[in-house]
Nucleic acid binder design. Structure first.
Lengths: 334, 334
DNA sequence: CTGAAAGCGCTAACAA
DNA sequence: TTGTTAGCGCTTTCAG
């Protein structure tokens, strides 16, 4: 019960008794039904208000169709990638009259199972950024409509949404190669357990570099925590290993910006000494100095598309996948 | 019911019948109760799964204590102010085992009533950034625990959380005055209906300026849309009116950054020709060029404090107010 | 270990 | 216009 904490909940019967009417009449008054004497309504409403009566969501949901609650699991609202996705999801859910419950894993893999368990019990459908196979399986098994985003290991029975980084990496590495870069370092997100797996930015980078005849291998990839500080620390590694990179490609804009700032602080000229390229196309990337070249992704669209897929599943459609095409935006950092 | 769309919902009775047991046994299996034969559990679970059975949230909430859903109404997730508040709310709500449903008004005053109506019907408590008195009254009357944030016109019966901009403006204007600035323009958020009212940044700016003997009046305040572009457009106004401002104080960092960029684009040197100061202390403000001087606010704390107040109301405590103290962070823009 | 009965708070359908 | 009856799907007694 909406945590009254203290005493027993006040029910429609309490109000009915206190107002000297039947509970039906109370229901009519509260729900603004036409078939009730305005005077009665007024009186009942007053009593209800004074008693602090609030209809139970649960009892109502029990009778009527109830509200659809969509669970949205993200890693961290403070990572500027997610608010844009959230925005798309909120808008699309609102159009359908759904409520959105937001859950954050705090980018902690070990918390994913707990979040998944909560989700399974408290929402009607789920859109999630999740990496732990156990957590994913938990939600899948629940049978609720489920869309998994940004995960290359999506089980076949689960719908998904992803960004076409194969195309993206071609654009990015191609751009750097055109600019004459041969020694390109990559700053990967070390928080992801799928590092290096097929389809990840990491492996696509290596593959594309090889295709273009660039000398890149695992030693060209540096793990970074997914944050500005993480990017900065990884840039220290790049610089300190005497790697001689003339360009740095980061897993995302956050890491790229952190790295770029650290490089500048250490006397590296951008882009003359070293070029920087990010992924995601955060608003932020336009505002830093120098403005960051980035692989832009329509994150709101990703959110909207996910909601559309949830809706499709509710009408019985099968598993599907949405692929978002990224677009390289060249700015002064390269 | 959780929008099955197609046919009737599958109930516990359906499963019981199909598995040849009583619904009690199904309940035991599904809820992992100890008093059931492991073999039976297994069998029942299999049947349940194969039938796509999902227990009804509503029916469960009806019986047990149910989950508390906290409604969080913000203006716009894309405004980087809000994610930080959301982060604080999510964390504090999670600690209490509550679910958070996020609603966005899209910064549109005319949508507030509709959002308030939804909130009233579908959550157990509410934390909101709301400006329309009608919407606020709607939620207040519902009797649910309610905390109104960042609103100078909070009804006495409603709990609130706000930032101490009286102190803040003293810090900001004092700082600029110390630096020798006399002609200070303010870029106000034109979307707020309370512009100029007592307690707003607008009026506190004018009051503080007067106290310090600076020549500021209404004509020194320029309305700006709450966005980067809004700040840019307002800066055009400042520049074009030949106002001769040597410093610009903005309603928030978003507006300040937009204005600062526009100024630079038009050949104004920052801070030599014109200094810029924002409010809020967005992460963003540290990253732009030049880094922005800003009145930093602990936005996560604001969110956490709001949750704490909701919790207090649930245990029967009365109306309260949390005041967050802002802190000036001086950077290169001034 | 399993089943039968009772009731959570509400609204739709019907009766008065 | 108002009241009565019947459930919604589930879990918690209490019997077996």
């Amino acid at each position: 019960m909406p945590a009254n904490g203290r005493s027993r909940r006040i029910t429609i019967d309490d109000v009915a008794r206190s107002a000297g009417v039947s509970r039906q009449t109370v229901s009519r008054a509260v729900n603004d039904k036409p078939e009730i004497d305005p005077a009665t309504r007024q009186r009942v409403l007053l009593v209800a208000q004074s008693m602090g009566y609030r209809p139970s969501r649960f009892a109502r949901g029990m009778v009527g169709p109830g509200l659809t609650t969509l669970g949205l699991v993200i890693a961290d609202v403070l990572n500027p990638f997610f608010p844009e996705v959230v925005s798309g999801v909120l808008a699309a859910a609102d159009e359908r009259g759904w409520q959105v419950a937001v859950y954050s894993t705090g980018s902690a893999l070990e918390r994913e199972t707990a979040v998944a368990e909560t989700v399974v019990n408290h929402v009607d459908a789920c859109i999630a950024f999740l990496l732990d196979p156990g957590a994913i399986e938990l939600i899948r098994r629940s049978g609720m409509p489920f869309v998994l985003l940004d995960n290359e290991h999506r089980p076949p029975a689960v719908s998904g949404g992803r960004i076409d980084f194969a195309s993206g990496m071609r654009q990015v590495v191609g751009h750097l190669a055109e600019r004459g870069h041969r020694r390109i370092a990559m700053l990967d997100d070390r928080g992801r357990p799928d590092a290096g797996d097929r389809g990840t930015r990491h492996s696509l980078f290596l593959g594309t570099a090889a295709e273009l005849g660039l000398p890149a291998d695992e030693s060209w990839v540096f793990p970074a925590a997914n944050s500005l500080d993480g990017g900065a620390a990884a840039m220290d590694d790049v610089l300190d290993t005497g790697f001689g990179a003339t360009a740095v490609l980061a897993y995302n804009d956050l890491i790229a910006i952190g790295a770029m700032r650290r490089a500048r602080d250490r006397g590296v000229r951008v882009p003359e000494d070293c070029a920087f390229v990010g992924c995601d196309g955060l608003t932020l990337s336009r505002l830093v100095d120098p403005p960051l070249t980035t692989l832009t992704v329509d994150k709101e669209l990703l959110g909207r598309a996910a909601v559309r897929q949830v809706a499709a599943q509710m009408t019985g459609a099968g598993t599907g996948e949405t692929v978002i095409e990224p677009r390289l935006v060249v700015r002064a950092s390269s």
